[in-house]
């Protein structure tokens, strides 16, 4: 304990109990990076705190096991720190593959993307949007590549905002400032009438909209938005003629602050 104020070191107990606010925890983690004695202390105090799970152990219902194992079968473990999600399309284990086989694997792989994305969303949103892995398997539509979406929603700085859609359903935006990208997720939005589309807009801090793509058809959808999140303060959705508009021509059915 040679650096920092004594006060800082004294937070090791509260930190090991997860009793700090997120800001306080981040600040303490910065201290941990430079203070070996606190690192050692936190490690041992975490072990002690974890023992507190023993007296309250409680066997879960059997369905939890089924749900967990069904969930993991749809999601690949992340590579070790330093790796990237971009290698997700790399073959896992098989190095030579016949074209037919490869195509078949790609077809089989596609639904897993939906689930991977939704699982990441469930983790990020605390279940607010996609409440379970089962539900996520019902995601109807994903546009752009799943890898795009997966990268955005699993970015370390990804944050999620949700809102009700007027006319029915919910929408969420997962945005990563570091990537400058965002994903729009919808659940239960009504289908656009014939000849119309739901168009998505980035809305700048000055209120100026720029088109960010379209909501795909389906009950539950996810789409990686086009363009740079930049200084957009919100994401909005309006009903537009098929093909989309240069500027919104109707009132937004939802506007989500990001």
């Amino acid at each position: 304990m040679t650096s920092g104020t004594p006060d800082v070191h004294a937070l090791s107990g509260a930190y090991a109990l997860d009793a700090l606010t997120p800001d306080e925890a981040r600040a303490f983690e910065q201290h941990l990076a430079t203070c070996e004695s606190c690192r050692d202390e936190v490690r041992s105090l975490r072990e002690a705190a974890s023992a507190l799970a023993e007296p309250v152990a409680d066997a879960p219902p059997a369905r939890l096991r089924d749900n967990v194992l069904a969930g993991i079968s749809q999601v690949r473990p992340l590579p070790p720190v330093g790796g990237t999600l971009a290698d997700d399309e790399a073959p896992t284990g098989i190095t030579t593959t016949q074209p037919d086989e490869l195509a078949a694997r790609r077809r089989r792989r596609a639904p897993a993307w939906l689930v991977a994305v939704a699982a990441a969303l469930a983790l990020l949103a605390g279940g607010a949007v996609v409440r379970s892995v089962q539900l996520s398997q019902q995601l109807d539509s994903v546009t752009a590549s799943g890898a795009d979406i997966a990268q955005i929603v699993t970015a370390p700085d990804a944050t999620t905002s949700t809102a009700q859609v007027s006319g029915g359903g919910r929408a969420a935006v997962v945005s990563s400032e570091s990537l400058g990208r965002a994903v729009l997720v919808t659940d239960g939005m009504p289908a656009a009438p014939a000849g119309k589309v739901w168009q998505v807009w980035y809305i700048g801090d000055d209120g100026a909209p720029s088109s960010a793509g379209f909501v795909p058809d389906g009950q539950r959808t996810a789409v990686a938005l086009q363009g740079d999140l930049g200084t957009a303060g919100a994401v909005g959705v309006t009903l537009e003629p098929a093909g989309g508009s240069q500027q919104p021509t109707t009132k937004p059915v939802v506007a989500i602050t990001v």
Binding site: R43, P60, N67, V68, I72, P77, L78, V81, A122
Partner: peptide
């Protein structure tokens, strides 16, 4: 149950990042 399920999913996803030297 939801929390436990989400936690297991995170444990699965993060499994390569467990560092035995840290506990």
């Amino acid at each position: 149950e939801e929390v436990a399920q989400e936690a297991y999913l995170e444990i699965w996803r993060q499994s390569a990042r467990f560092d035995a030297s840290r506990g």
